[in-house]
């Protein structure tokens, strides 16, 4: 699937009667990486959840390839094109890494067991395929969730704090993977408190300044 441009038009978000942001507009072309930055409580997660389609926006619209992602055909296409990994990794403690991944991928497109094994190897979890996830550490569980980035062919990634609980080597590998995805023409929107300045071509949206 080829990524299409994303246009955010005067988006507004309100949480518990507090205005987080209003009239937010930006464009994102295929192949761009957008880091959403800002202090705690500035609405980073809310913005990502609105973009993903979990949280209704108070006002404004998001277009993907010219069609709104909030209803109709545009929403259908958006659902097939974006991958969201939130704060909670969606990893079931009582399932093994392989079972978790095969289910999470099946929610959009089923994948074969060999592919899952290969992806787990990529995130440094070789040999943990058949281990129930409650025996894994927080960082390892996060890696299980992130293995989806190696398995699913979504052009747009929306990642909320993907680097949480991950060690240095893991962060470097993930940064590389994100860059490779962008170089392939994919789009990435992510929040992190970790600096991405050393990566080329990362745009930054500072919610602390927008508000």
């Amino acid at each position: 699937m080829k990524p299409l441009p994303i246009e955010v038009r005067s988006l507004a978000c309100e949480r518990d009667q507090r205005e987080l942001f209003t009239a937010m507009s930006f464009d994102l072309q295929a192949g761009e990486v957008l880091q959403v930055a800002g202090p705690n409580g500035s609405g980073k997660t809310s913005l990502l959840r609105i973009l993903a389609g979990l949280l209704p926006a108070v006002a404004g619209d998001v277009h993907y390839g010219g069609a709104t992602v909030f209803s109709g055909r545009g929403r259908e296409r958006w659902r097939q094109n974006r991958l969201f990994i939130g704060h909670a990794p969606a990893v079931k403690a009582n399932l093994t890494a392989e079972e978790n991944l095969s289910w999470l991928c099946a929610l959009s497109q089923p994948v074969a067991a060999q592919q899952i094994a290969a992806a787990l190897e990529q995130v440094g979890l070789r040999g943990f395929e058949d281990v129930p996830c409650h025996t894994l550490s927080a960082g390892q569980q996060r890696r299980v969730a992130l293995a989806r980035l190696y398995l699913e062919a979504h052009p747009v990634w929306i990642l909320d704090e993907p680097f949480t609980a991950i060690d240095k080597a893991g962060v470097a590998a993930l940064e590389q993977h994100i860059q490779a995805h962008a170089a392939d023409g994919g789009t990435v929107i992510l929040t992190t408190h970790h600096s991405l300045e050393h990566l080329e071509g990362v745009r930054c949206l500072d919610l602390g300044q927008v508000a």
Binding site: V58, A59, D61
Partner: peptide
């Protein structure tokens, strides 16, 4: 979407 904005205001 414009309608919900209208209603709210």
């Amino acid at each position: 979407m414009n309608w919900s904005f209208f209603h709210k205001l």
